[in-house]
Design a protein around this nucleic acid. Sequence first.
DNA 1: TTGTACGCGTTATCAT
DNA 2: ATGATAACGCGTACAA
Lengths: 323, 323
Amino acid sequence: MANITEIARQAKVSRSTVSRVLNDHPYVTVQKKEAVLEAIRSLDYVPNRNAINLSKGKTNIIGVMVPQINHPFFNNLISGMGEACSRLNLSLLVTPTNNDFEKEKVSFDQLRYKQIDGLVIASTVSSAEFLAEVNRHGPIVSCEWSEGSHSQVYIDHSNGIELIMNHLIERSYEKIALCLGNPDSGVGKSRKNAFYEFVDKSKIIHLKEWYFEKKYSFEDGRAVMNDLYGLSALPRAIVVGNDYVAAGIIHQAKLLNVKVPEDLAVTGFDNQSISEAMGITTIDQPIHQLGIEVIKTIDSLINGQHKNVGNTLPLQLISRQST
Amino acid sequence: MANITEIARQAKVSRSTVSRVLNDHPYVTVQKKEAVLEAIRSLDYVPNRNAINLSKGKTNIIGVMVPQINHPFFNNLISGMGEACSRLNLSLLVTPTNNDFEKEKVSFDQLRYKQIDGLVIASTVSSAEFLAEVNRHGPIVSCEWSEGSHSQVYIDHSNGIELIMNHLIERSYEKIALCLGNPDSGVGKSRKNAFYEFVDKSKIIHLKEWYFEKKYSFEDGRAVMNDLYGLSALPRAIVVGNDYVAAGIIHQAKLLNVKVPEDLAVTGFDNQSISEAMGITTIDQPIHQLGIEVIKTIDSLINGQHKNVGNTLPLQLISRQST
DNA sequence: TTGTACGCGTTATCAT
DNA sequence: ATGATAACGCGTACAA
């Protein structure tokens, strides 16, 4: 209710002086400063953010556009961003888009409206041309690789298989099976390629019947283990593209009295909570860190660093009892 | 860049008329309206949100205060809130507090600053008196039961054990064990009480050695199963306060050739993803729905419904293969 | 060191 | 139906 004018009246100074006190500007005597602070206390004054925003053309709010909130990746990302924002005294405005173009436009317009100082794009269905247009109105940073010249910070997924294979080789596993989800998806293809490249250029032994695909669930994993068990030649390790499938394999392995990792080593992907619960060696995406980095990037962009950047973060291997 | 004045100049009308067109107000001829719309298009104009906010004293932003973002409960809650906000054309400002009083004050001040129209408190460490004080400056709704007269919408945890026990009785399980986490926490106490009340007033059989506490992890669950297995008298079912512990019990049961649910039925709590993966009957908290309800509540509060409300949402049983 | 006066972009009120 | 003009609350050159 109380505004700067009332404070000025009560403290018997001008509004400018009140403003100076509020913003810690120099050139104000201790007496007046005290008087102003006293008036602020007694009137229970708080500055109106909207007025400040209008006057400064800045809100200290960062927007983030995500397809959905209730998803491990985006949740983790938002969490990292929230932490970094809190440190930088920024606020975080979250907009779920459901991968809907119209919803995305709402978020883009917030940037043009000056409701947010910068926009972080976790994932988008909009075109590179559209992003370029939006970028003219304010800083944007994308968390996935995409065309276009705007800033990007994203996780380098290419080396996941490499990390796992090196880990297995270090531990002297040579007969290695592979179990993927959708082999035609982007990650599926790159993982499959990486695996077979590795097989070619090393002394790893890999049989045709040691390859499984389209495995997505705990139950699928149990079935894989049963299939493996029926083979005449058993691998010593299996690389799995999903923690839940890996968990199913381990579960069934124990039922079949196959010891993990002594008889069969198992690795998962994504460091889901089930992998920690069951002690599965897996690959962690530094998503939280990505959230922090992306806020640092957009913050420096907002503060005048107008050259766009492209950074990547590497994956990390989490070694547990299953290898 | 372009503002309302430029539009007015280009369309050869007054700023008032532009504002009328922008807000769909009556009393403006089709010709002038067209001229204004044309100017808006040609100058690529978007209204400045901060100016509107200042002028209207309203932002259409809802704030939400959470201890942490990266937590299943709060993530789900934020997700529901995001969905509801999107439907009501509201934005969602997320503030992680880390249960720090000072961080919470930042969020409270946003309400007083008029940066947000209403505040949702997922969980707080501040006192009821403090909340009452904040409530004088703007609408707040809390997602957990608390003292004080502000609006509250929360999940009624009291009937979880009841739902499970009725379910087990329906399926004719009579010899029932209990396995809790921290027995001295709020939920621990209420679950323990509810269980033993049930035992007293029904024909359920429960032996002293069928009670376990301070079990939190998958490994703890395996140990519980081993303990059970060593007993002379086995229960036919075990009620577990945590999905991970339940998963560990089932895992170990299979290793011991104890069939689930034929020899031993197992129930979990919280409907975590591992319970779906392993087919565990569990209790679901309607958290997403809570998020939706809480936004509806604060929205009606903002729009003049100034009587405070207190609503609860019931828990739900998810029946799967483990019973 | 302090105060005056204006600008920020919009909506609302009141004439006309 | 339209257009001045006054809020909204604050920051800030500029003057003193």
